[in-house]
Design a protein around this nucleic acid. Structure first.
Length: 190
DNA sequence: GTTAAGATCTGCT
DNA sequence: GCAGATCTTAACG
């Protein structure tokens, strides 16, 4: 993964993360997928961003250096996984909303429940974290290294068809198109 | 110490 | 398509 691309503009980073591999190694084995859906959370003019009201205990990882993980717990049941972006100390991040499962399908199915369809394995922030066994122990983890890391996809088409839409599940800043998806992909959350 | 709200998912209608 | 589950976090007293 080209970490430098994450350190400047968060919106740019959200677009560049599309199509990249996300890999996760555990004792049970390796799982991987291609990122097909992201959302940008900005530090300025974005009340939906956890960092918009300053640094707190929960969002401290968001103020770390670009390329680290920000993982948090929501709605009593689910984790969300973000990649910290922008200059260090800025408090911006990109939420990974969905991936297309590539390797370790059986392991993901085991974690998500038997009989879970391929399209349902990681098509949403909470589902993705279940399938990849992401929890708070990975909060602040440097995504250049194992057991959770990003990798460029060499087989990617030169010009990816990217579409931007309003973000999902956030009540503010609906006029901003900060969600980015790979057009027509089957594994989007919706 | 108490309370209200949330970057969601699943199951049922 | 819609409401409920469920609990951590942060704001307030």
């Amino acid at each position: 993964m080209n970490e430098e691309a994450l350190g400047y503009d968060t919106v740019e980073a959200a677009r560049k993360l599309l199509g990249c591999y996300l890999l996760r190694e555990t004792e049970e084995g390796l799982v991987s997928g291609i990122i097909v859906e992201t959302e940008a959370y900005l530090s300025e003019g974005d009340p939906a961003c956890h960092a918009s009201r300053g640094k707190t205990r929960r969002n401290a990882a968001m103020f770390g250096s670009p390329g680290t993980a920000y993982v948090y717990f929501i709605y009593g049941n689910y984790y969300c996984f973000n990649v910290v972006t922008g200059p260090e100390g800025r408090g911006e991040a990109v939420l990974i909303r969905a991936v297309e499962p590539i390797k370790g399908l059986d392991l993901m199915q085991k974690r998500r429940g038997e009989g879970c369809s391929l399209k349902n394995l990681a098509s949403g922030p909470g589902k993705l974290c279940q399938a990849f066994a992401i929890d708070r122990s990975l909060n602040g983890h440097d995504l250049r290294y194992k057991p959770l890391y990003l990798k460029n996809n060499p087989d990617l088409p030169q010009v990816l068809s990217i579409k931007s839409t309003p973000r999902i599940g956030v009540s503010s800043a609906k006029d901003k198109h900060l969600r980015f998806i790979i057009n027509e992909n089957e594994f989007l959350s919706r």
